[in-house]
Nucleic acid binder design. Structure first.
Lengths: 262, 262
DNA sequence: CGTTCAGTTGACCATGATCAAGAGTGGTGG
DNA sequence: CCACCACTCTTGATCATGGTCAACTGAACG
């Protein structure tokens, strides 16, 4: 079974055996362990390495001066943290461990070497970066427009599908370490209201959430309840249909993607 | 006076005269005019060009099936739309014109040529991409955690500073074409409540908003009211302090940024 | 076996939504 | 030039979603 990063990247680009070997090597870099509820990176830091999550969950978050906290995104195995250290000079958000966390520390130079030698990997890395931006956009919609029930349902759908693409679901259930307070911070609700909302989802049979494990008996139903449309995740599978249609309607069109140098 | 794109990019990287000439050429590409309230790109499209906003305002947005609309970001002169067409195969959001809009259409190949020949420009383009991602993050915080008054104040601060960096403010006022309904869609409020909130901001002397023009008599006061911290915009000026501190504390450190090929 | 932390429940409250109507403004065509 | 239309802004009355505060339960872990 391939490692999570390889699985994620192959979600987008077909990789050669050489590419896979390169990625395996990345994964084997110096590993750092972070204890639950400790920070991997803190706002204002200027990290010199890129972190690759090998095992465990983390969350990106920002805090306001008066203590309010907003979780910006969850990070799961296969996610890279802060490719942007190549460009921006300090990180603008913190990353905290939700569980015990194992991360590979990838040196700038190492990543740079791979990026120059394996264009497939580079494209796939940027793909991950852009998908995570698309996820940000969806979160703005989530907190801005959806009701409490929709928000929580939507979050469950997203997490489940993202875990699925890295092989961390068994088809209808997955680990789910965030506490109700974490869900609250991610959805812009309070923990009390998240509790009531989760109970409602349970009552209507849409989710089973217990013992840090999430089960979704009927994904389509939960998606409907959360107004969830997976297109924004830009997964291969969810794009298949659109892809096929586009190729059919634009016969002479898309050459393989032209990578852009940076 | 340099064009808005040049101004924006120089906010990050010093550009050579050759770089500036290249950018001027980009700006001189085929121009497209879009009427107010019409779409430049629609969700699901697979555009073959990158748009550069020359004049006017646009907004990125997503809509839910039942008509709810969330504005994800405003786009102003100097903003590039969808650099990601190099990687993702369909756009996941629409871009609509708020005013009459003039955009330059930059062909993939053209951009690719410049990217390979001018590393400074490439870095600067990716910088813009990453900053806009950071802005997305801040919007999640805005809609997720802030009160109505804070949200609107925060939006005003952001827009004002972004316009300032492209030379579209006179120090304390700027154009502001979005309607109160647009502000509502951007902040996750209703138009009625935005109206009351704007009135409150007016009453306390924090903003003057009339005739599509925004005036901020006391920016520091408005920033305080909106819990606004400009760090997330990654502007040169707001980073100066941190930069200086970092250089002082890490003597042997940061070599010029290693661009990563893609 | 006590302490801690997540989850749960209830009573009450407030922010912001909804609905509806009217006022101002600008553009268009008769 | 004026009448009309469309759009934005404004205001009031009422309502509902979700917040706040506080107490209690239960499981996990030393």
């Amino acid at each position: 079974m391939p490692n999570p990063l390889t699985r994620r990247l192959e979600e987008y680009t077909p990789l050669s055996n050489a590419d896979r070997a390169e990625l395996a090597q990345l994964t084997a870099q110096a590993t750092r362990i972070v204890e639950p509820r400790h920070d991997l990176i803190r706002e204002g830091d200027t990290p010199s390495v890129v972190y690759l999550i090998l095992k465990g969950w983390a969350c990106r978050y920002r805090t306001l001066k008066d203590g309010r906290r907003q979780i910006i995104d969850f990070a799961i195995p296969g996610d890279l943290c802060d490719l942007n250290i190549f460009i921006l000079d300090h990180v603008d958000h913190s990353i905290g461990a939700l569980t015990k966390l194992a991360v590979a520390q990838i040196e700038r130079d190492e990543l740079h070497r791979i990026a120059t030698s394996s264009p497939n990997i580079t494209t796939a890395l940027w793909w991950q970066e852009l998908v995570s931006k698309s996820i940000h956009r969806e979160w703005i919609v989530n907190v801005g427009q959806r009701s409490a029930l929709e928000r929580v349902a939507h979050l469950f759908c997203e997490i489940f599908l993202r875990l699925e693409t890295v092989g961390l679901s068994d088809g209808f259930s997955c680990d789910f370490p965030p506490t109700q307070q974490d869900i609250a911070d991610a959805t812009g609700l309070t923990a009390v209201h998240v509790n009531r909302t989760v109970q409602e989802l349970r009552r209507s049979g849409l989710v089973v959430l217990e013992g840090r494990r999430l089960t979704i008996p009927d994904l389509a139903a939960l998606q409907a309840a959360g107004m969830f449309n997976p297109a924004y995740l830009h997964h291969k599978r969810s794009d298949k249909h659109t892809d096929a249609m586009r190729r059919a309607s634009a016969p002479g069109a898309p050459a393989p993607i032209q990578p852009i140098a940076i």
